[in-house]
């Protein structure tokens, strides 16, 4: 009971600390200085129609690099915690015929949709993270339909490391040939609004998509395969 009063006290304290913050928040009426610069020059400088993409990939590219690193570390931690334990295989129910044939029809479509999302990240809403998640959900469908499938972890590891390495290499190329680390302007900017435009942004975002997709597939297949 004492403990519950303690938690109540803590929550009320938090409310009192945050109350002035909530009261003083006024809705914005103008963009901030940084955002104004991005809005004015972003499309001309980088050639990407989606401003969020150019912020994520180029202006704040180091943030994304750190994020991908955190994702890699958590995946490695999960793989370490769920090491293979030698238990007997237990029997599982076989998936039904409808689910199997439906999966074989739907799986390529879902993967194609994921690839579309991350190659068009600089033109339409979406990008590497969303495309990777869509691909991971396709793999969930595969795991549900064909239960005895073993995802080949070597392929996943290679895919993840290669895309991560190429991501760094592209960043270094930006440092050598253009303005700075992860600068996308070492490739020609192209015509505004077409798919082969915006310099290296589509390539970088595709690599991020592959890396995120491989990591999420790794997490889910490790959790699902565990007996």
């Amino acid at each position: 009971m004492i403990k519950r009063f303690f938690s109540l006290f803590f929550v009320i304290l938090l409310i009192f600390v945050f109350m002035p913050l909530v009261k003083d928040i006024k809705p914005l009426s103008e963009l901030g200085v940084t955002s104004q610069k991005y809005a004015k020059d972003g499309a001309k400088e980088l050639g990407a129609a989606n401003l969020v993409t150019s912020v994520v990939v180029t202006y704040r590219g180091l943030d994304t690099l750190g994020e991908v690193t955190v994702l890699f570390i958590t995946t490695a931690g999960i793989g370490f915690l769920l090491r293979k334990r030698s238990t007997g295989k237990n029997k599982k129910r076989k998936a039904s015929e409808i689910l199997k044939s439906g999966t074989s029809f739907l799986l390529p479509l879902i993967v194609l949709f994921g690839v579309y999302i991350f190659t068009h990240g600089h033109l339409t809403p979406g990008g590497g993270f969303q495309g990777g998640v869509v691909i991971a959900s396709a793999i969930v469908l595969l795991l549900l339909s064909d239960i005895n499938l073993h995802t080949d972890h070597n392929i996943l590891n290679w895919l993840e490391s290669l895309s991560g390495g190429f991501y760094i290499i592209l960043g270094l190329l930006g440092l050598l040939l253009a303005g700075g680390f992860l600068d996308n302007r070492f490739l020609p900017l192209g015509k505004f609004g077409e798919i082969f435009s915006a310099g290296a942004i589509p390539i970088i975002y595709s690599l991020i998509g592959l890396k995120v997709g491989a990591e999420l597939v790794g997490i889910i297949s490790k959790l699902g395969r565990e007996e």
């Binding site: 998640v133 991971a136 997490i219 889910i220």
Partner: peptide, 19 residues
């Protein structure tokens, strides 16, 4: 914020529930 909406719909209500 359509980008955030896509991510939240796919991750928050899809993959988190599955995990």
């Amino acid at each position: 914020a359509p980008d955030v909406a896509m991510t939240e719909a796919a991750i928050g209500s899809g993959l988190t529930t599955i995990v």
